[in-house]
Design a protein around this nucleic acid. Structure first.
Lengths: 200, 200
DNA sequence: TTGACTAATTTACTTTTGTATACTATAATC
DNA sequence: GATTATAGTATACAAAAGTAAATTAGTCAA
């Protein structure tokens, strides 16, 4: 990739910051105003950035410049406190909180997120307060970490299948293994992602 | 916040997806085309979403609708394998991989990210392969999880300070506690965020 | 000295986009 | 029955934004 001039660096840096702050690319005129320059001058800087591969164009749309490898994100709804029957319906609710996951990870699959409570999965590195992303409607294989409804209460467990029997293990040995022979078990989906925030 | 109709939910959901995927808001006509509806119809849906507080306007700019509490993101460079002296310099390198963290979390602080190797922090919920986000240049307090250079090798440890002595503990008891009396310890920064991807 | 690149100006034009208006129709509510 | 909110069509216009052209200058290398 070719070198940029000082001015070109300052222009693309401004574009990067504008995009991060406003969630959209600036117009030619907005950039011009920021640098107190003419439209034509910014046009030329953009042309240079495009030909050097630091920007790409998407047709002749307004705000139609883009970064060459900008990642796409999928909004994943975080279902704060989850209870019983309302579970699946809440996923469609649009007033929810969202986290944004790279589409490299979600890969067009139906996902939602949950806040984990309790210490039943601590030995697997999932602690109280973590947010986990779950993909729906994908058959888990033994050893996968899943979210399941156990007698209509949600839980994060390790999935095992032996014949027709489903076993849900906690990695923390102080919790018992649950069997589909004794409980009504409904596997919702399996874990694909986890985020944790350290406060303070 | 008022209720949305089914149609309005579908419209705002589309806007959310469009923005996440393209890094900008759709135009009225782009929404109309997607739903195979007239411009005027979408205008009315947007008017309803605005009056109900699910969208806000930024002047009469193109693509000038916005989410009331849209989050800004900061690109954080992931420094794959980290060694000795090159450490801090690499942070400026622009060919790196990036993860995107909400500015609520980074709060304008200088950050970088690392891939964790080994099991020394497993009991604290940090396992092999996790990506951790570190903030530079902030004085850690005892109990914080930090990244430090110990005799020029990087490590994730729990920080303790007793007088002038710095202690670095692993939460996994099979590793010894390191003291600044015996090792050259250079604390780089403390953990503020963690992400984990489950493969398969 | 000629050419190439950068940097800047100004003007003009086209396309894209937001917005206003007028009209039809259904359902719910007072 | 009148009113209000929703849902839709169609058209027109003004504002915003992209783009092209012509011009001037400075630097640098062949």
């Amino acid at each position: 990739m070719k070198e940029l001039t000082e001015k070109q660096k300052r222009v693309i840096e401004y574009i990067r910051q504008f995009h991060a702050a406003n969630g959209m690319m600036p117009t030619v005129r907005e950039i011009a105003t920021n640098f107190n320059l003419s439209i034509g001058s910014i046009q030329q800087h953009l042309r240079a950035l495009l030909s050097k591969g630091f920007l790409v164009k998407r047709g002749s749309l307004s705000r139609g410049i883009d970064f060459p490898n900008r990642k796409s994100f999928t909004p994943v709804a975080v279902l704060g406190s989850v209870h019983a029957g309302t579970f699946l319906e809440q996923i469609e609710d649009s007033s929810s909180d969202y986290i944004y996951i790279s589409t490299d990870i979600t890969r067009n699959r139906k996902c939602f997120a949950l806040k984990v409570k309790g210490d039943s999965m601590e030995p697997s590195g999932i602690v109280d307060g973590d947010t986990v992303v779950i993909v729906k409607g994908e058959e888990p294989t033994s050893g996968d970490i899943v979210v399941a409804l156990v007698n209509d209460e949600s839980a994060v467990k390790i999935f095992f299948k032996e014949g027709d029997e489903i076993l849900l293990k906690s990695s923390n040995p102080k919790y018992p293994t649950l069997s589909s022979n004794s409980y009504k078990i409904d596997v919702i989906g399996k874990l694909i992602y986890l985020v944790r925030e350290y406060k303070g």
